[in-house]
Design a protein around this nucleic acid. Structure first.
Lengths: 161, 161
DNA sequence: GGTAAATCGGACAATTTTTGTCCGGTTTTC
DNA sequence: GAAAACCGGACAAAAATTGTCCGATTTACC
């Protein structure tokens, strides 16, 4: 429940992978798929999504491949989710117009305004996480202990638009 | 993608609904289902889940139904998700032991530690939202404007266990 | 004591979403 | 011109979600 999609995982893995080999390096979807045991076609599509949003640059033809965009480090998780999975909604009626909503019955959406709030919060959270954050967290290493500093700014109320 | 499940929605609606009619009031699953146009059996099962975790109290037999537990207001969203949908994981390998993970290949989990961090953050966020919060937000009314004060404490680093 | 209304709980069916596959096209290097 | 790459649509398979069915138990009331 509420799991990240595989496509998103693949996209993150790809971006991290490409970050870790030089900026200039070209990576083919085939190579990426091989390295991480991901179905080639799927890897291809994910990278295409990333290219469409200019998170990475595609080079066609033999000797082609993908290359990290300049300041890819600033890509945030919200953009990434949107690029790869389409719009994120914690609850169905988040995207629609005020009244339509799809859910029936009178008192319904009991919950709507709170859900909207939660939705905004999570969006703000995702917006605040950049690829650079993800990268540097890994460099900082290890799993168990206390909370790394550069995550501390996440989700303060002013982030809400 | 990453949507809350219907069961969770139903559970929230139920708890809010029950909160809004007196504490002592009994609510049958049939009545609840009717009010909100939810399939009876589903409504029943959701309420059973809630009862198993003692979020609500069940009274069997004719004239039976469900009753809000005392200080139900303190139930938090994380508990609720767990009760209704089972354990929450942003990414597959979150629940397993260190090594098994399920994902193959060498460099893999590129991403693991960052995902774990994100997972913890979201958990902390959900833990910090109580039923009371959801309720009062609704009373505070309206949608558009600035952020209500009682949500401000969410997600500061010390929440991480 | 029997009947009806309610909670329980398991098995299963239907639907939707996610994930992966296939195939043909275009671009470019050699 | 052939091979290796990106591109993109249609579709198939698998998994998860959602909903249905059925029978059992508990209890109020006649």
């Amino acid at each position: 429940m509420m799991k990240f999609s595989k496509k998103l995982e693949y996209a993150l893995i790809a971006l991290v992978y490409m970050s870790q080999r030089g900026e200039e390096q070209l990576t083919t979807s085939r190579e990426f798929a091989g390295q991480f045991n991901i179905p080639q076609e799927v890897a291809g599509k994910v990278m295409q999504s990333l290219a469409r949003k200019n998170f990475i640059r595609s080079v066609q033809g033999v000797k082609g491949g993908y290359q990290l965009a300049t300041n890819a480090g600033e890509i945030n998780l919200a953009e990434l989710i949107n690029a790869v999975d389409g719009p994120f909604t914690v609850v169905g009626c988040m995207s629609q117009e005020e009244e339509s909503c799809g859910c029936d019955q009178h008192d319904y959406c009991n919950i709507r305004s709170s859900m909207s709030l939660i939705h905004n919060r999570i969006m703000a959270f995702f917006r605040s996480i950049t690829l650079k954050d993800i990268l540097s967290r890994r460099i900082a290493g290890l799993s168990g202990e206390s909370f790394p500093v550069h995550f501390d700014r996440l989700l303060n109320p002013t982030d809400i638009k």
